[in-house]
Simulated scan of single mutants.
Amino acid sequence: MSKEKKAITKNVAAGATILHTVTEQLNTSLQSLVAVLGEKKYKKRIKKAAKLLVEGIKEATEKKAPVKKVKKVIPVKKKAAKKASKKVKAK
């Protein structure tokens, strides 16, 4: 066992990355509201607004191809109709 800790890479969900980018964009565009609302209220409102904006948005890479169901064809043995045999009349 080595004493060095290895960096663990986590797979970040696509929704979290979208939420993060929207939050950053809102922060940069609405900086003037920090003075009016205060830091704490401003952060809460930005967080709520970002959640509402991102709700229902999914990246195209998350979509899975629809699964096509294949019907199984079961071969059925058909019985041939019996031929009518000619009856010989005896005289």
Rank of each mutant, 00 (worst) to 15 (best):
K64H: 01
T61W: 04
K44A: 10
A65M: 01
I18M: 11
Y42Q: 05
L26W: 02
V67K: 09
A50L: 05
V73M: 05
E39Q: 15
K44N: 12
K91L: 09
A14H: 08
V36D: 15
T23Q: 08
A35I: 09
K71M: 03
Q31C: 04
T28F: 03
T9M: 06
K77L: 10
I74P: 00
L33S: 10
R45C: 03
A14I: 05
K87Q: 14
V67T: 13
P75D: 10
K47W: 02
T21L: 11
N27W: 04
K89V: 10
A7M: 06
L30Q: 09
T21E: 15
G38V: 06
V73K: 07
V88Q: 11
N27V: 02
V73E: 06
A60Y: 07
L30C: 07
A35Y: 07
T61H: 12
L33F: 15
K5N: 13
I46T: 07
K48M: 07
K40S: 10
A16G: 03
L26H: 01
I57E: 05
V54M: 01
L19E: 08
T21Q: 12
K48I: 10
V73N: 06
P75K: 13
L33G: 05
E55T: 07
K6D: 12
V22P: 02
A13T: 09
G15W: 00
K79T: 14
